[in-house]
Every structure is written in C-alpha cells, then in structure tokens.
Computed example of a mutant assay.
Amino acid sequence: MSQVLTLQSRDGQAVEETWRQFVPSAKLHQVDPRTFEFDWTSIALDDFSLVRYELAASVQSAIEPSDEIMACRVAVRDGWVRTPTRELNARQPWLSIDGPTTARWNGRAQVRAFVFARDHAERFARKVTGDDRLVLKMTDASPRAAALAEQWERTFQHVSSSLLSMAATGFSEPLVEAELRRHALRTTLAVFPTTFLDALDRAAQHQAAPRTVRRAIAHIEQHAREPITVDDIAAAVSISTRGLQYAFKRALDLTPTEYLRRVRLDGAHAELKADVAASVTDIARRWGFAGPSKFARYYRQAYGRNPRDTVRMG
C-alpha cells in the first residue's frame, strides 16, 4: 500500500532530512533563509518513490545515489544542473545512477523525481533483456531526445495523479500500483542512455516452443487478478521478456500484455453480468484497470457496449 507524506516548512534542514528518507546522500548548501519556503508531497511504494515539491529559495543541492536510481526534473527559470564532467540542460529531466549530481537555482522551483531501489531496477532490466549479468550503469545523464524528455514528463504526471487520486480515496489496489511503478521504471530506462538499452540492442532471443506460450497462457489465467506483469509471466515460464513477446506475436499475433488484458476484461465482464448492484469502478480496479474511462474504452472494443449496459441488461 502506498504511503503519502506531505510537509510544509520554512526550515531548510527539514528539506534535507525529508530528502534523505528517499536518497540518503541528499545535501543542501548555501541556503538563503530569507526566501525559504517548502511544500512537499511524496508517495512511497515498495522499491519505488515519487517525489514532487515546490521550493522558494536560493539553494544548491547535491546527490550521489548508491543504492538508488533517481530521475529528476528541476523546473526553474534561473538555475543549472551539473555532473563532474559537464553541465546538463536544466530545462530537461536528468538521471543519476553513478557519481554526484549538483543543482543550483534562485527563486521558486518545482522539483519532481522518480526514485527506484537499484536492486529492483536491475532485476527488472535483467528480466526484460534476458541478460542475467546486466549491471545498470548510466552512459549519459541527459534524455536521448527532446521528445523522450517530454514523454518522461507525461509519465510522471500520469503516475503522480493516479497514485494521489487512489490515496485520496483511501483505495489501495496492488495490481494497479505495480503497473504504475513498472510504467515509471520502463519509461525512465527507455528515456535515458544506460546499459539497459545496450543490452536490448544485442541479439534477442528468437526461438520459443509453442509449449512456452501455452504455459504462459495458463499462468496468466491463473494469476490474472494478481499484480503480475509481463516480466513476471516471462520469469514463470523461464524465458526473457523479449523472447515471450516474440513468441506470443508469432503464435497468436498478440502481445502478452494484450492477452493479459483480454483475460482481465473477461473476468470483469463475468462479474458485471453476475451482479446487478455492482460498482463498475470497483470491478475495473479489481481487475487492474486504474481509470474507468480506459476500462470503458477497452470494454466497448471487446463487447460492443458500455460496462453499465452489461450491469443493466445482465
């Protein structure tokens, strides 16, 4: 279940202490107490945290993650971001895995960041690539392209709004939370140049017996209501994620994600037909659909009518 932390303060030490809960190496320097004002919100899941805060100050910050991977954006008019080797584009997000990163700004800044446990991120990367020896390292702190930087921003807004909306209602759904965490990590690893992308570029696994697909289907149907991902399915049948995707496309002309969605839609459909007093939103969430509008769109594509029509008609 997610843990939400909110804090408002005019104390510079409070910012540093709060940041250190997520990145123990975080430090603040040259803080001007006359202008200091701090408004923090964070959401913590297992192996993943989302941080966003607004800080009015003239300040310099530094981090040097060791057990974490952090992707961050400091939105400010007057500021800079630097690694030991070069200055980064302060208008774009940046990645910190190896070595220190320093940021300096004057005035009001909006900071947003994904923080991943490094061992979790490496397990994910190894499953996706099929490389059991992969060590995540950064080859550049900047996004590979401006369009990808924008994609990271959109992903942050989506994951942030979804998790905060769930927390505000007191609702917790591990399946949805796991998908949002996976989305944040996959986007981050796709946006920034790392050894993950190098591993994907190497020779992929191109052979899989139909038996592998059948075993994957059985695993999906048995665990569809649990927070499983494509990586989990691939691990369960002893194949890389990329190999599983190729095998499904070849055998079924579907991706594993599409097949998992079909199974979950079928489960939701059966519940809607059986319970005339059902809450469409609750059933959708139980089957892993975070947003009612997206669930309704997939449902119409599959069954030719809205979910509420199924409740009324049975």
Rank of each mutant, 00 (worst) to 15 (best):
P210I: 09
W40N: 03
N106D: 13
T229I: 04
L136S: 07
A277W: 03
T102I: 14
L45T: 07
I69H: 06
T241I: 00
L244I: 02
V237M: 02
L189V: 06
L5S: 10
M166G: 13
A234T: 06
A146T: 13
L197G: 14
M1W: 05
I239N: 03
S240K: 03
A302W: 01
D67S: 15
F156Y: 11
A270F: 00
L45A: 05
G304H: 01
D198N: 10
S161M: 04
W40G: 01
T229D: 08
K273E: 13
A117Q: 15
A113W: 08
A208C: 03
A224L: 01
P33A: 10
S160W: 15
K294A: 10
R300C: 01
N89W: 04
G107F: 03
P65I: 08
A274M: 02
E37G: 11
L148S: 09
F156D: 07
R91W: 02
A149D: 10
S238D: 14
V81F: 01
L189E: 12
D282S: 07
A62C: 08
T229N: 06
L28R: 14
T194Q: 08
E16R: 14
V31I: 14
R126Y: 12
Q110Y: 00
A204F: 04
P93Y: 06
Q151I: 10
E150H: 10
Q301I: 00
D198T: 11
V176L: 09
R123E: 15
K294H: 07
A57C: 07
E37C: 01
R308G: 01
A14T: 13
P84W: 06
I63T: 10
R112L: 01
R123S: 14
A44V: 12
P93G: 06
T188L: 11
K273Q: 14
E271K: 09
N106T: 13
Q30W: 08
E150F: 03
P174F: 02
P227V: 02
T212I: 14
R264N: 06
M166T: 13
D198H: 09
R186F: 08
L244K: 02
V276D: 05
E179Q: 15
N89I: 00
D201N: 12
A208K: 04
E16N: 01
R242N: 11
S25V: 03
S240E: 11
S238W: 07
A167R: 06
T83M: 06
F114M: 07
L148T: 00
R308T: 02
T195E: 11
K137V: 12
L7V: 06
E16T: 14
R144G: 13
D11K: 08
